[in-house]
């Protein structure tokens, strides 16, 4: 288990380094950062001043190594756009993104797991069909579209909820629903198929034969086993929500990391984009690392491979 853990950890570190290197290079090739920084109507002199000021005239590899060394110490540089430390700005906004991610994940879990269980108990009935329909819609509808629909219905027509911003808990409801709904189909279907498989297993039949109450069989014996793969899926979905809330944050004007990333890309704020990409990839790396360990713990066969 220790060797396996170390191997996985080494792999995770390599992935993180590769991601940071590739994004660093891709960002530099996507356009001249000095031009973007100086603004649309800047003169060539303005641009030269900017280029020298931010060290953008040095060789790329030197710029990368320099950045990597400081990043290890938690110093991601100064955002040339805000003229403030990158980690300070990201830190401020991470709370909002985490809150949104947690709300969205809770919504997804509360909707998808009961639906998946119901669909598995009553397969091929109207309940199953309804669950399938909800899941297909969730998968087919782009989140920006769903977000705008929510704005129309709950913001403009019913006036129940605020449309944009993040100042109160009410502001998080619509974006959490829009973001969470997207994760629903995968969770629901995995719960359903897991439950169907488990419900057909011998030990469930035994439990029923022993005369246990249906509810106890369902929740204590069946769901507990069926939900293990769902837990690793939730880890990935949570990573996705933190990194992928860009569109939702943009639509609902929530000042989180996704929105910051979106804005930073358009204004070529390289240190910021670089740090955000690294942060998001680190979420994935860490979550995947832990879910690998969890799986290995549950299934000893994995450790040998």
């Amino acid at each position: 288990m220790i060797a396996y853990t170390l191997k996985r950890f080494g792999l995770a570190v390599l992935v993180a380094i590769t991601v940071s290197f590739v994004t660093f290079m891709l960002l530099r090739f996507s356009g001249d950062p000095a031009v973007a920084l100086a603004g649309a109507d800047a003169t060539p002199e303005d641009i030269e001043v900017v280029r020298v000021t931010y060290g953008l005239d040095r060789p790329l590899l030197i710029q990368y190594i320099d950045w990597g060394r400081r990043a290890l110490k938690g110093d991601f540089g100064i955002s040339p756009y805000f003229n403030q430390p990158v980690e300070k700005i990201i830190g401020n906004r991470l709370t909002i993104t985490m809150t949104l991610g947690a709300c969205a994940l809770s919504f997804a879990v509360l909707l998808a797991i009961p639906m998946g269980v119901l669909a598995a108990i009553r397969p091929n009935t109207w309940i199953d069909r309804l669950a399938l329909t909800v899941s297909v819609i969730g998968q087919a509808m782009p989140s920006f579209f769903f977000g705008l629909i929510l704005i129309i219905v709950f913001g403009v027509m019913l006036r129940w909820l605020p449309i944009s911003g993040s100042s109160t808990w009410k502001h998080f409801i619509l974006p959490a629903v829009a973001l969470g709904y997207y994760a629903t189909p995968a969770i629901m279907r995995l719960t359903r198929s897991g439950m169907l498989e488990v419900l057909g297993a011998d030990y469930i039949r035994t439990a029923r034969a022993k005369g246990l109450r249906a509810g106890k069989v369902l929740f204590k014996h069946a769901l507990r086993n069926a939900i293990i793969p769902v837990v690793s899926l939730l880890a990935v979905q949570f990573g996705f929500m933190l990194g992928g809330s860009l569109v939702i944050e943009t639509i609902f004007a929530i000042n989180g990391v996704g929105f910051l990333g979106y804005e930073s890309i358009s204004r070529a704020d390289l240190p910021m984009v670089q740090a955000i990409v690294l942060l998001v990839s680190m979420f994935y790396v860490v979550l995947t690392f832990f879910s690998d360990l969890l799986n290995a713990f549950l299934d000893p066969r994995l450790r040998v491979q």
Partner: peptide
Amino acid sequence: QRTIPEMTTMVAELMTGG
């Protein structure tokens, strides 16, 4: 002053008095 990156959201806010 508020920053709202999406124009359609801004339009919805304008229409509802936000």
